[in-house]
Design a binder for these strands. Structure first.
Lengths: 122, 122
DNA sequence: TGTCATGTGTACTACATAGTACACACTCAA
DNA sequence: TTGAGTGTGTACTATGTAGTACACATGACA
């Protein structure tokens, strides 16, 4: 599934939507656009990367509609979830140090740290 | 020093600049503005919170000029450093989980985790 | 054969962001 | 008393963001 990382935002959305569509006509550009709350022409342009990715709010509704991970979709759009930003902003130096420290850490190390924190022994 | 958290961006900048100025006339609005590369009137408005905080690039130059922590200044401006955002965007789910897990953790717990990572035993 | 839904091209718009440019009144030092 | 430096008010602007609105050609299907 990691190949996704090399896709554009629009390309990924189109692929996911078309996959749903293969066995459900409710996933046409027009009908998805309507449920998401944007104009069909706009969604069409988004999927062909003719315009910049939409706002965070629209990306979230799109993610929900396409059963995609909002954080992943936001990342593909070059954005970071505003709730994560708020957490970091509350203690910028602390989180800054931690995140920069983890920049090159392998995935499993980050996961392990997260689990350690969850079983919080502080 | 934590009272800083309750200040506005502009108020903090003004306070820091005026402190420098008490024993160095090179820290007038005009001269700092010139070194930072903005119009004096603009810096004046920033310090009185008459306009939104400036761009990340300008905040960084301001931080450097005032020997302030860029992450802190950016946070006061409601922003998160773009390099941190880039790190998170590379592995959005992983960092998302970790950061949300740490939302309510005490400072020392986050620090401890960061140190653990630095003495990286992965 | 008409009509219905589909995807998309073109044109336009409202609001936010990130400032510049200039003028003005004030103060202090020579 | 003038002139250099100071802070700030007002007016303006360029670019980016996040879309809407409508028209059009196409293809299926009843």
């Amino acid at each position: 599934m990691y190949y996704v990382v090399h896709m554009t935002f629009g390309g990924y959305v189109r692929e996911v939507r078309e996959t749903f569509r293969r066995d459900d006509p409710a996933y046409s550009v027009r009908r998805v656009a309507q449920r998401v709350g944007v104009e069909p022409a706009y969604l069409s342009k988004i999927e062909r990367d003719q315009v910049a990715p939409p706002s965070e709010a629209t990306i979230r509704r799109l993610a929900s509609e396409l059963r995609a991970d909002p954080d992943l979709l936001l990342a593909m759009a070059g954005k970071v979830s505003s709730d994560l930003q708020a957490i970091v902003r509350r203690r910028p130096q602390l989180f800054g140090e931690l995140i920069r420290e983890l920049r090159d850490a392998p995935d499993h190390a980050i996961l392990r740290v997260a689990r350690e924190v969850r079983d919080g022994d502080w």
